[in-house]
């Protein structure tokens, strides 16, 4: 009986923790969703503008569009700072593993879990300045973008991808990837003859100035999506943990009451039989 009581107490403790984490996730999530609502039009428009542009402008005298043999890929892997979010981090790592299988890869991790994961597996880490997803802001994304664009132009890698988690809904989050560099003309254009576009002062100058901004915008979008996904995943995981704890507590209470009842019955029987014997 004492044992059951102890277990009830310990599980109630756990339940309090999971409940608190759920509430924290909910309150942060509403902010993160607001942020997504603000940023979504920006990067969807940006991406479609980029597609238009790369389709329309040719030939491109800038280093960002040339076809290279892909020897090395750089991946920006955005995961969470903490665990206890169901399969959120693991799904992303699995996706990264599947997407980069057999390739030579360097990683720029965002999120503490991401850094730990890739460090442990011996990946080449480009920078560990951006470990906390929660604290990454627009300015950091511009810094990341400047760094990576420079590295790309210096031929340190031939392809840049961002792997993040898409916030589909409160209940569904999917890992996804977006290829940022090089700009792939065939991928972007829909086969129609591109319309003439005047580019001033010149494609080279304009692209070299625009591309880092666009990359930064898209990375920032991916960060916002991922962060909201992490919170939603944590909320769901913690909700089910809390309800699980409730079930176990109910079960244990029942057992405890049964044990208590039978011990009382036994005591009464003993007293009665003792009284009869006199």
């Amino acid at each position: 009986m004492k044992e059951i009581n102890l277990r009830i107490k310990s599980i109630s403790g756990t339940r309090q923790i999971t409940k608190a984490m759920e509430l924290v996730a909910v309150s942060k999530l509403s902010k993160a969703r607001e942020r997504i609502d603000r940023i979504r039009p920006f990067y969807t428009e940006l991406y479609s503008a980029l597609s238009d542009i790369s389709a329309a402008v040719s030939p491109l005298d800038t280093g960002f569009c040339d076809k290279r043999e892909i020897k090395k890929t750089c991946v920006i892997a955005i995961a969470g700072d903490r665990g206890l979010a169901g399969g959120y981090n693991n799904n992303l790592f699995k996706y990264v593993a599947a997407s980069t299988e057999g390739k030579s890869v360097s990683v720029l991790p965002i999120g503490k879990r991401s850094l730990e994961h890739f460090e442990r597996r011996g990946y080449e880490i480009i920078s560990d300045d951006f470990v906390s997803v929660e604290d990454v802001d627009v300015g950091d994304c511009y810094e990341i973008s400047r760094l990576l664009c420079r590295m790309y132009l210096d031929d340190e890698f031939d392809e840049l991808k961002v792997i993040y988690t898409n916030f589909v809904s409160m209940l569904g989050q999917e890992p996804a990837e977006l290829r940022l560099l090089p700009l792939d003309k065939e991928l972007l254009s829909d086969g129609t003859e591109p319309a003439f576009t005047l580019v001033e002062p010149g494609t080279g100058a304009v692209f070299n100035s625009i591309i880092p901004d666009v990359v930064a915008g898209l990375v920032w979008g991916a960060v916002c999506e991922s962060f909201a996904s992490e919170l939603a995943a944590r909320r769901t995981a913690m909700e089910s943990a809390t309800s699980n704890a409730d079930d176990i507590i109910d079960d244990l209470r029942l057992k405890y009451n049964k044990a208590r009842k039978s011990s009382i019955t036994q005591q009464i029987t003993e007293i009665v039989s003792g009284a009869q014997a006199e």
Partner: peptide, 18 residues
Amino acid sequence: SIDGDVAVMAGHIPYLTA
């Protein structure tokens, strides 16, 4: 723009600049 001031009005030619 990076190249100087520009003004855009209706019917402008397709145009891209930083």
